[in-house]
């Protein structure tokens, strides 16, 4: 158990090391001079040399990477090229919006996807199954930004023209200042993300349930006289739980690193929007920081999911 965990953590650390090296050296070989970006186009050679010395970019690249790593381990990710603020602080300010979006949407997509998957699997080939499958296919095929823009047009703009403000045009309001306003602003982003993601979970649940409902122990459960509800939710879902947890862990982790497209469409100032702005501004320390944070979330989620397996299924131990 301990060895298993240690191996997982070692692999996770390896992933982060490779990822950090990748982004760091990527920007080293890329064209463009960071000193020029900070000092501006009119800076003299002497000023540029000064800036380079301050940034430490005049030293050999390996030494730079070493310094970067040792600082990153203490949570210091350097300073933004644009406004000289600490990168860690800039990212931390963006996390509440992304976290609110992902947490709410995840609850919603589980609440939509899992029942649809079960409904579909309980009567395979039936009309309800076909509806479920149509939902799955459409959800899997709908690009989130298309769904987002269409919903904004149909649910915000058209009603507003008719004199009815159903939804806000976008933006993020902090949960701490006004919970009702927070939820109202997130309703459309949550639904957009949840509808496309629910398809993945419906398909997963359907597949697992189809596999498991023919098993002997399901028949035993029915023979005991358990209600159909109990058979499906208690005995059937048990088998679907492991793949669902895996998928959920991976999805949440990937999205905490920024739900780039949704944040862009709805003007949410989250981590994903920060990444896009940083790319536009060529603000490399922020890009490096966001990529590493995204990697950290994924690595951590993988380890948590593995731990969860051990709790869920004693055979893994």
């Amino acid at each position: 158990m301990i060895r298993f965990l240690a191996r997982r953590i070692a692999f996770g650390a390896g992933v982060l090391l490779v990822l950090s090296a990748f982004v760091f050296f990527l920007f080293f070989v890329a064209p463009g001079d960071p000193a020029r970006m900070i000092a501006g186009d009119k800076a003299t050679e002497a000023q540029l040399a000064m800036v380079r010395k301050n940034l430490g970019v005049d030293r050999p690249v390996i030494a730079q990477y070493g310094t970067f790593l040792s600082r990153a381990l203490t949570g210091d990710l350097g300073f933004s090229y644009r406004n000289q603020q600490p990168v860690a602080q800039i990212i931390a300010r963006r996390i509440p919006a992304t976290l609110s979006l992902v947490a709410g949407a995840a609850l919603l997509w589980l609440a939509i996807g899992v029942p649809i998957g079960i409904m579909s699997a309980r009567h395979p080939g039936s009309f309800r199954d076909r509806i479920g499958q149509a939902f799955i296919l459409t959800g899997l095929s709908f690009p989130t930004f298309v769904l987002g823009m269409m919903s904004l047009y149909l649910l915000y703009f058209l009603p507003k023209q008719a004199g009815l403000t159903l939804f806000p045009p976008g933006g993020y309001k902090a949960l701490t200042s006004n919970p009702a306003l927070w939820a109202w602003h997130l309703l459309l982003p949550w639904s957009t993300l949840a509808l496309t993601m629910a398809a993945v979970y419906a398909r997963l649940t359907r597949g697992q349930m189809l596999d498991v409902m023919g098993e002997d122990y399901i028949r035993t459960a029915r023979a005991k006289g358990l209600s159909e509800q109990r058979v499906v939710w208690k005995h059937g879902m048990r088998a679907a739980l492991t793949p669902l947890v895996t998928q959920l862990g991976a999805d949440i982790a990937l999205m905490l690193g920024g739900v780039i497209v949704i944040e862009q469409v709805y003007g949410l100032q989250g981590v994903g929007a920060l990444a896009v702005q940083a790319v536009t501004n060529q603000d490399r320390p922020i890009i490096i920081g966001v990529v590493l944070l995204g990697g950290l979330f994924i690595v951590a989620a993988n380890i948590i999911v593995d731990l969860f397996y051990v709790l869920l299924d004693p055979r893994v131990r």
Partner: peptide, 22 residues
Amino acid sequence: RLTDLVMSVPFLLCALALVSAF
């Protein structure tokens, strides 16, 4: 392990980083 590595990378963020570099 290489496959695992590619799968545990935030791909859209890495894509953004690559595009911003080149």
